[in-house]
């Protein structure tokens, strides 16, 4: 099984926000929602010296995505295809992890816009697009649509300093594999929240320290998501039905 992943090199990042805006432009993400962001930390003294650094963030396409566990939509069988033509059938909810790429996706046709997954993500990577007549959850897809056209994700393409490295972590010849296995990267986790994020940060010790201290999630948000309201689910089902008519 593959796992697409991203390595962000904080030594190269200058905090220019090109990634955040290229993503917005590519997918017409309305303000104030975002799939991709840059936050700042510092200048602040750390045990390893003064740091002033950035947290370029996006969906982590986690190994154990808790967002998909809170989706109230009934599982339905779906066929997944790998790049080399392999097929796999799996029963999935409206949001799921692709077994061949490890990318966490949303089926917009089936999403009922309940917002559970938005609440569940400890990284705040999802949003409910209320600008739509029929609000849907949305987030970073690692630009799967672009990958199909052999184009890199929009944020990677625009990164002015080459700080974003994208690839398949299961491919031992890939640059992401090399960096993850040799550079002692930071995964943005904590004792409480440890769900296997697939965005890795490399850089100076002081910068990784500050990013972790400032931005690592501690709240197991998915545990606070209320049990999917039956009423909401039925309402959504009716809405879907009316639409079909």
């Amino acid at each position: 099984m593959s796992q697409l992943a991203m390595v962000i090199d904080l030594n190269r990042c200058v905090g220019c926000h090109a990634c955040a805006i290229a993503c917005r432009a590519e997918w017409a993400v309305p303000v104030p929602y975002r799939r991709n962001w840059v936050k700042r930390a510092g200048p602040e003294k750390t045990p390893k010296g003064m740091s002033f650094t950035f947290y370029p963030g996006l969906c982590n396409h986690c190994d154990h995505p808790m967002c998909i566990t809170v989706c109230p939509v009934d599982p339905e069988e779906r066929t997944f295809k790998s790049k080399d033509g392999k097929m796999k059938k799996m029963a999935v909810r409206a949001t799921f992890k692709d077994p061949f790429t490890g990318v966490v996706l949303i089926d917009k046709e089936r999403c009922i816009g309940c917002g559970n997954c938005v609440e569940a993500c400890p990284y705040g990577a999802r949003y409910l697009n209320e600008e739509l007549d029929d609000p849907k959850a949305d987030k970073c897809t690692f630009c799967v649509e672009r990958l199909e056209h052999n184009l890199e994700p929009a944020c990677v393409r625009t990164c002015i300093s080459g700080a974003r490295i994208f690839g398949d972590l299961s491919d031992k010849n890939s640059e992401v594999y090399r960096l993850v296995s040799t550079k002692n990267p930071l995964r943005l986790t904590s004792k409480e929240v440890n769900i296997g994020p697939n965005v890795y940060y490399i850089g100076k010790e002081k910068d990784l320290f500050l990013v972790k201290k400032t931005f690592a999630p501690h709240e197991r948000k998915w545990e606070n998501v209320k049990a999917p309201s039956r009423r909401r689910v039925i309402q959504a089902a009716i809405k879907g039905l009316t639409k079909a008519i």
Partner: peptide
């Protein structure tokens, strides 16, 4: 010089 890259402002010309 820049290849396919533009900065945040360049991306925001739209």
């Amino acid at each position: 010089a820049n290849g396919p890259r533009v900065c945040a402002r360049g991306n925001s010309g739209v």
